[in-house]
Amino acid sequence: MTALLSIRDLTVTYRRDGSEVAALKHVSLDVAAGERLAIIGESGSGKSTLALAIAGLLPASARIGGRIDWFLRSPSSWGAKAPPSVLPDISPSRGEIALSSPPSPISKVAGRDPTAKLPISPLEGEMSGRTEGGLMERDAQKSAAKPTHIPLGGRDIGFVFQDPSASLDPVMAVGEQIAEVAHAHLGLTWSQSYARAKTLLERVRLPDPDAALRAFPHQLSGGQKQRVAIAAAIAAGPKLLIADEATSALDTIVQAEIVALIRQLVAEDGMTLLFVSHDIALAAELAERIAVCRHGELVELGATAQIIASPRHAYTRALLDAHLGLDAEPLLERAGASR
């Protein structure tokens, strides 16, 4: 098992109403290259904070302790070309997840980004990760030089959010949003990038890829929009795909289709998958390992079969017991039901 990234003693604190709230407390976790790892938990468990921290997408106001080390091989083109991007999930300012040396070119790119220091919208605020970038770089410089490079959001990490209506640009054609990722990160010409976008739309199985290239997000259904968001997330061939509640807003049937699609794409491209979900049953269908978070702590980590069949932590058991499956004990006392 080769590690893709290693998280040690990660603590994330937000300031809220003048007081400090720890969203993550001393989390240590290794993510193996090529594995499908689910991070599950309820609201406030820290699961999304963990995903955002890995992607370098924490808000600038977050205080971060601990370290994340990446073990990525350096591609020849890295840092060569990183024009500003419109897609929130591929913004160059996210390059600041930059946790291992060498740190320089990405921060320069981010420094040039005029929006980076002006969080005019909550989204922009989330996109700039100044504080932890600096903090982590200091840490990283202390560590021995490794054959690694800084992971860049969009190129090395694809991120799929819960709400594709919020992550896709409503006034940009879908094809351009996907092509832009390939253009920005792979150095392809625009016509090559559009050709790649069309292939990606076929791969995520949009019914009419040619028409979809020219479609705007509002012309697509929720499931189709999420397929587009996935196509954009994998357009630059990232090593790591993070899906943060990516199927939670979809109905059960579309959810099952999207999960099957993610599984297939991850296998075909040899990606590592981080699947963040509140649904332990859904996580168990997709992931090989499950990490259970509660109140900012990692309470249990294990192989899916072990977590489901013999959970060690009482909270994992409680989550399993709370799941209402088709075969679950009905809460309704049918015999005494008034009819």
Partner: peptide, 18 residues
Amino acid sequence: AAPKLNRTSKDSDAADRQ
């Protein structure tokens, strides 16, 4: 499409990576 939890069986797919 409903996610199902099989709490007793062994999932070999999940185990083989460990």
